[in-house]
Design a protein around this nucleic acid. Sequence first.
DNA 1: GAATGTGAAGGTTTTCACAGCA
DNA 2: TGCTGTGAAAACCTTCACATTC
Lengths: 222, 222
Amino acid sequence: MPVSMVPNMKKRISESTIHRLSLYFRALSLLEKENYDTVSSKELARREKLTPAQVRKDLSFFGSFGTRGLGYPVIELKDKISQILGIDRTWRVALIGVGNIGSALVSYKEFQKQGFQIVKLFDNDQRKIGSNHKGIIISDIKDLEKEIKDDNIEIVVIAVPATVAQYIVDDVLKAGVKAVLNFAPVNLKVPPDVYLRNENMSMELEYLSFALVNNHSPKKVK
Amino acid sequence: MPVSMVPNMKKRISESTIHRLSLYFRALSLLEKENYDTVSSKELARREKLTPAQVRKDLSFFGSFGTRGLGYPVIELKDKISQILGIDRTWRVALIGVGNIGSALVSYKEFQKQGFQIVKLFDNDQRKIGSNHKGIIISDIKDLEKEIKDDNIEIVVIAVPATVAQYIVDDVLKAGVKAVLNFAPVNLKVPPDVYLRNENMSMELEYLSFALVNNHSPKKVK
DNA sequence: GAATGTGAAGGTTTTCACAGCA
DNA sequence: TGCTGTGAAAACCTTCACATTC
């Protein structure tokens, strides 16, 4: 039996665990830069404001990566997590809507770093179509279905106004795309085999507002 | 006993409940536009992909806003939620770092709509300082502490590179700010009386990547 | 009849605590 | 000795189901 076999993921992994994997990945990247060879669950937890037990439990869902008495090997664990998250490869991403947010995302370095390559831009504005934005020619949104198919796009980012987002996503799905990241403040309808995630930038501000008004204790008060 | 007394919030309200209040608010705003007078927990749930019981339970933490047999009054409930979230007023917001993301946020209409007024911009780039960006003169980041104090800023949005974000937030807190929204992909250290929320835009893409690679079932498979 | 409000049940996630191993 | 890996316990959150009210 091959040693590196991925554990056959019986338990459903929780959303929170996956999100924390992103945090571990980030922390480990930094630890690598700082030339650490190993790191304990305690230190990893400290760096991302979590508990050591949480770190160990999260990682244990995917295998045993540490050494008792020592901790986790930084580079190995980082590689392992990038495998688990599927960011040990590149993804072909299309972005629809080259407005305020859209153009900010094109230049967002973190996406590149993690293998999310925005290779296609779409807009419906005749003044933008055909022009070169950061090295990418903006396509007409009318050609969405064909171009996304032809270009083997795997993930689509939607950054159009809320009022048209549903029409856009309907078109996108016709091209066979199974993963959508939506920045429009609207709840999109997609069939159950499509992965849809929403990025609602007002939500966290509203949380802050709520906390300020209600003296909401951020977590348990120690 | 006054009828409209706000229940004295004994139970700790969960983060998820607060986030769902944002969703209810959004749905109710739409329902108001569509001229609905009342809405049932069932319909509200359908519109935000939740369950009716969840909606009722969430609202029940804050009071009894519905009528049995009828549902919830759209406008009243919307107003009530905006009170709870503290967005029935305006907030003075400063944004630090007028780069890609920063400038996108300045133009982001949703913030305005919900009362978050970006009234101050800071940057460290001499070419930007003093220039007018969407009607706001960009201030020198060196004057952070004084200007934030003088201008009664209540919430600060951080959109600077990860490497300098901690220094910036340290300065911000010297000015007495108690609420920070951080877009830099780094875990900031703040004292326990400061509300800090992070907006990590790669996280949801990583979730999509994970889901695609692992055939992760988005929720329970029905 | 229709739909809320809510204790209680059920399910999920986090934390505890300790056996096991380098 | 130090720290992982993990069942079990505790905490937390969601769903159920029904009494209640309009």
